[in-house]
Amino acid sequence: MKRYIAYSALLGLVWCFVHGTISVNNFLLGAIIASLIIRPFRSMLNFDMEFHAGNALKKIPAQLTYLFVLIKEIIKANIIVAKIVLQPKINIKPGIIAVPIRTKTDLGITAIANTITLTPGTLTIDVSDDKSILYVHTIDATDPEGVARSIKDDLEKYVLEAFE
């Protein structure tokens, strides 16, 4: 039940941002609408699970680090792909590689898949049925182990800290 209220409050805040003016009236309206909207998705969101505000707050520094790393990687990714696009002759060796991941929760896998898509020359295509391997399309697949290692060392560490 606590979790239900927390989700409603969060969506109420999102409603404030979408509306453009942040006020108590807007927040309450958003929270009431949100509580009705998320009711049908009860089974997906695990409302029975315990919610500890302390745990959520403890993760904020890790999440800020993650955000910083993400922004850095996005800018790097853009420059690399922009260079490829601007070359007079396109010379790439793309391919799909399998990347093993340690994350087991759905939230962690979603986060790491989205992060991989936003970072240099990589695009998540699918996750294997046992949730242990991500299939990643990379624009330079001459060194599959190197790509897998860079994902593991540079990104997965921060995702694990921020979302587990």
């Binding site: 799909i96 989205n114 695009l123």
Partner: peptide
């Protein structure tokens, strides 16, 4: 946008859209 890219690429692969001829590996 990453979610959209994931769904489009997955649908394309399942539909049998092949990789371009420069591709070197396809573990999926």
């Amino acid at each position: 946008s990453p979610v959209a890219a994931h769904m489009i690429s997955r649908a394309a692969h399942r539909h049998g859209v092949g990789l371009c001829k420069e591709s070197v590996i396809d573990e999926y």
